[in-house]
Design a protein around this nucleic acid. Structure first.
Length: 563
RNA sequence: CGGGGAGUGGCGCAGCCUGGUAGCGCACCCGGCUGGGGGCCGGGCGGUCGCAGGUUCAAAUCCUGUCUCCCCGACCA
């Protein structure tokens, strides 16, 4: 029996001074988690119950698609990380054992699991495989934040698939999509599956499962039938009214005007009528000029993907030397390859304003094609109000709860994970990886459903199904009825938290609503006199009384109908 | 890594400018009252003021250094 009087649930009336995010404040106040250091958290009994419920949902869905649960260590020899090329990651905790051997704390398990596959799998007959574990991940984040949303140590379910070819990987991936859809639904979260960046190492596709909430660190672009991480989103730009064309570009004085805003205002044109130039360096010293509309921003991830390689913004002195004074640079007359964002439209009627590569002047009447050569790219960050298939997109903050990656041979190649096909020739194994963060799912649920009174858990994640509050002292009739109700609820398979503390009703109600169990049942003198108990639905805080006879069944019935 | 803020009982804070042996609310303990929205009365326990060094007769307070935490940004395989 879980009696609150002897349960470790240290609730706080006031929010921790340094907390900002809703989930951070409420999970601490409700006694679910406690901070140990920056990005390091203990999960107290009630909080751990929540996380375990998420884990069990994830486990069931992984098993349903043929996943096999295992366990791999957190502490790894550095050697295999060197071989995979991930030893240099800044976020990777590095240490030595007593013999001086380099070790690392794993931030995921691709190396280890691939090593096992490399030594154990010989034949196409051994494939495909879906392996997963729930294990602590260690990441030396530059900036942990928002309570449990971004931490340096956390439990992640990470799954890895091994297939003989691209088709096999696609099928495994699709099965994970279906499983993840179900996990998110079962966690009671509002969620989106979004297209996402495949990352530095390339890959063949990636999705993220995003739970929209105010404290989210990511931004997602949404329109009917469209959902993408802003990092990779593409959309039709909002139109801009351009000034009329000229026979040739002409200089205009713009003294000291180094910002788009200042130039646009001075020339009385919309900011979108300017061309913003962004010089980048690739291959050590080759400069390219990326040009976007003045009201747009270069998206560095999209640019990297468009370039197909890493780049860095040019330093001011490089810009000065090869183009002109920063703030006044532009594509006209630049002896550089120009990458022009596709939102810059060339319609033969309007023209643009661009830097003249000389101090204190700009050029107006600039027309791409006529006045400079270019290659078209899609490298801008989409904006709210842009459209996809005619629908306006909105941008929402969201927290990444899960991600799916088609890795291909990213790890199997360096770690030599191969198999022999029917003809006896050696082939690389095609891999996928699939993460899910139970702590983030829990925090996202707090973020999405909290109200003035506290947390309001989805039924499937709540630490307890029912918060049973008894009002009445030791030995009272109320206590006897509540004791009986508790065991009846348990017999029906409901987990109840029994608030048997010797405190006033206000405190008990406040704590119950802070903790956020989906149903609160109150046994008190008044209702009892009428042969009833009170039942409150946490979400919406609607109350009703129900007859004492058959109360447990009635509560179970209500509970089953809750989201 | 850049910018900003904060470390004083379990939690939230005041005191610091103008040095003089630490205070408030909540929580906690004891007694009593109360008993449907954090109730009331009385009595208590609990802090070498993040750490180290310095100035001074005297340091929470002034000086120097250092550690830690939070927020914004950068970063986030």
């Amino acid at each position: 029996m879980t009696r609150l009087s002897s349960y470790f649930l240290p609730t706080e009336r006031e929010a921790p001074a340094d907390a900002e995010a809703i989930s951070h404040i409420l999970m601490v106040r409700a006694g679910l988690v406690r901070q140990v250091g920056a990005g390091l958290w203990s999960w107290l009994p009630a909080g751990w119950r929540v996380q375990r419920r998420v884990m069990q949902i994830v486990r069931e869905e992984m098993n349903a698609i043929g996943g096999q649960e295992m366990l791999m260590p957190v502490l790894n020899p550095a050697e295999v990380w060197r071989r995979s090329g991930r030893y240099g990651i800044d976020e990777l905790f590095k240490l030595q054992d007593r013999k001086g051997t380099d070790m690392v704390l794993a931030l995921s398990a691709e190396e280890i699991v691939t090593q096992h596959i490399a030594t154990a799998v010989r034949s196409y007959r051994d494939l495909p495989l879906i392996l997963y574990h729930f294990q602590t991940k260690e990441r030396d984040e530059p900036r942990p934040r928002a309570g449990v949303l971004r931490t340096r140590e956390f439990i992640m379910k990470d799954a890895y698939t091994f297939d003989r070819d691209r088709e096999g990987l696609d099928a495994a991936y699709d099965r994970h999509v279906a499983a993840y859809d179900r996990m998110m639904d079962r966690c009671g979260l509002e969620w989106y599956r979004v297209e996402s960046d495949v990352g530095m190492m390339g890959g063949f596709g990636a999705h993220e499962y995003m739970a929209p909430c105010p404290a989210g660190e990511n931004e997602i672009a949404l329109a009917p039938g469209y959902a993408a991480n802003v990092e990779v989103a593409s959309a039709e730009p909002q139109p801009v009214t351009l000034p009329p064309r000229l026979d040739e570009p002409e200089l205009v004085d713009t003294p000291g005007m180094t910002t788009v805003k200042a130039v646009a205002r001075s020339l009385d044109v919309p900011q979108g009528a300017l061309l913003k130039a962004f010089p980048v360096i690739v291959d050590e010293d080759a400069m390219k000029l990326v040009v976007v509309r003045g009201d747009h921003q270069v998206n560095e991830i999209k640019l990297r993907n468009a370039l197909g390689q890493a780049f860095r913004p040019a330093h001011p002195d490089e810009v000065e030397r090869r183009l002109g004074p920063p703030g006044f640079i532009g594509p006209v007359g630049a002896e550089l390859p120009v990458l022009l964002d596709e939102a810059v439209r060339v319609d033969g009627r309007g023209s643009y304003v661009a830097g003249a590569n000389r101090p204190d002047v700009h050029l107006r009447g600039v027309e791409p094609g006529r006045d400079f050569h270019y290659e078209t790219v899609d490298v801008r960050t989409v904006l709210e109000g842009d459209t996809v298939d005619g629908s306006v997109i909105r941008i929402e903050p969201a927290i990444e709860v899960g991600n799916l990656f088609k890795l291909g041979a990213r790890y199997s190649e360096p770690l030599n994970a191969t198999y022999l096909d029917e003809s006896g020739s050696e082939q690389l194994i095609w891999m996928g990886s699939y993460g899910f963060g139970p702590a983030r799912a829990a925090a996202a649920a707090v973020e999405q459903y909290a109200d003035e009174q506290g947390i309001s858990w989805p039924r499937t994640l709540a630490p307890f199904d029912v918060d049973l509050v008894v009002l009445g002292q030791e030995g009272s009739e109320e206590r006897r009825v509540a004791d009986r109700l508790y065991s009846e609820l348990r017999d029906l398979g409901l987990d109840a938290l029994y608030d048997d503390r010797d405190s006033g009703p206000g405190e008990k109600f406040a704590d119950a609503e802070l903790l956020g169990c989906p149903v609160r049942v109150t046994v008190g003198r008044k209702a009892l006199a009428a042969g009833e108990v009170e039942l409150q639905i946490r979400r919406g805080r609607e109350s009703r009384t129900i007859p004492m006879d058959g109360a447990a069944e009635a509560i179970a019935e209500v509970w089953r109908g809750l989201p």
